[in-house]
Structure formats: C-alpha cells, structure tokens
Amino acid sequence: MKERATVVCWQRERILLVERGRARWSLPGGTIRRDESPVDAARRELSEETTLEGHKLGCLFQFGGLNKRHHVFLCVLPDDARPRPCNEIVRCRWFSPRKVGTLVASVPTRAIVALLFASGGTTSGFVSPT
C-alpha cells in the first residue's frame, strides 16, 4: 500500500487546494519517502508545492482505500500566509469547504473534506496544531 502525506491548510474559513495541471483540484501532499515520517513528508510536500514553510501541523487522521493510505494533517495558516505554486503545481486557490464538493477534484480530496466538515463547515472541532 502506498503511503501519502496530505495537508488540509485552513485560513479565513477556506481550504487551500492545488492543481497539478490535470484540471483536477487536490489537497497539497504526496508520497512518503522511505525512512521519512508522515509529518516530515507533509512539511516537505507543503513546501515543495506551495512554498509554505515553518507552520505547525497537527495530525488529524488516516484515510485510505485499497491502494493508498493518506496521513492527513491540519495546518492553520495566519492571514498573511500566501501560498505560491511551485514544482508540478500550476495553481493554488482557496475554497470554502462546501465549494470543494462541487469541484472537479480528486476522490480522496472530496472525501477528506467531506469527513472534516460534515457537521457544518467549520473548524470548531479541530484540535489546535502543536
């Protein structure tokens, strides 16, 4: 089973999604390298894809199917944090949790966002990242 680190970035009631040029939106993240912890992979992928660095990540849950397991992290960003597309990412954009369900997005992205915001679309239930 492939292991992935996935980051839910939250700022001003919105979630950051990235596009890799395949006309599908997804949460930032990627494959966990051998001998790399999930949180280190999440930090690396967030930096590589959005140039965001030095922000705290909180572990939310693991989400998986038959072929992939996503280690999902939360990053609550300050208002002045500005992601920029980098490497294979062509666009970074903020969406409300409700809007994500209407987008052409990866199946895991839609499912993870639905799990997080099923009870009303706020982060009131989140534990603050450490």
Rank of each mutant, 00 (worst) to 15 (best):
G121E: 09
A105G: 12
S119C: 14
L16V: 08
E53K: 09
L27K: 00
A81W: 03
R20G: 13
A42S: 03
R24E: 03
P78D: 14
P108W: 02
T6W: 04
P38L: 01
R44E: 00
S106F: 14
A5D: 04
A41G: 01
F126R: 11
L74C: 09
G21Y: 02
T31M: 04
L66G: 09
R82Y: 01
V76F: 02
D40Q: 10
A105V: 10
L66A: 11
L16W: 07
V104S: 15
G65K: 05
S47E: 11
R22W: 14
R84Y: 00
V18H: 02
L52K: 06
K56C: 15
R43K: 04
V72L: 08
R12G: 00
P108V: 04
V90K: 12
R43Q: 08
R14Q: 15
T122L: 13
T50L: 06
A111K: 14
C86T: 04
P97S: 07
F73V: 05
E53Q: 12
G121N: 05
S119Q: 13
K2S: 14
T31N: 08
H71F: 11
F63P: 10
K99A: 13
R44D: 04
F61A: 00
A114S: 14
L77P: 07
T51M: 03
R84L: 02
S47A: 13
Q11H: 00
M1N: 09
H70Q: 01
A81R: 03
R43H: 01
R69D: 14
L17K: 05
S37K: 04
K56F: 10
V18W: 06
A81G: 04
R22C: 14
A41T: 07
R33V: 05
H55S: 03
T50W: 02
S96D: 10
V39D: 09
D35E: 10
A114K: 12
V18M: 05
T130N: 15
C92A: 13
F117T: 09
R91M: 02
G30P: 05
S119H: 12
G125D: 12
R84V: 02
G65I: 03
A118N: 13
R24K: 13
R24H: 07
W94K: 11
M1K: 06
S119P: 07
G30H: 01
R14N: 15
R43C: 01
I15V: 10
R91G: 05
R34P: 02
D79A: 15
G29Q: 06
V100F: 09
G125Q: 08
R4S: 12
G101H: 07
G29Y: 09
R33F: 08
G54S: 00
T109C: 09
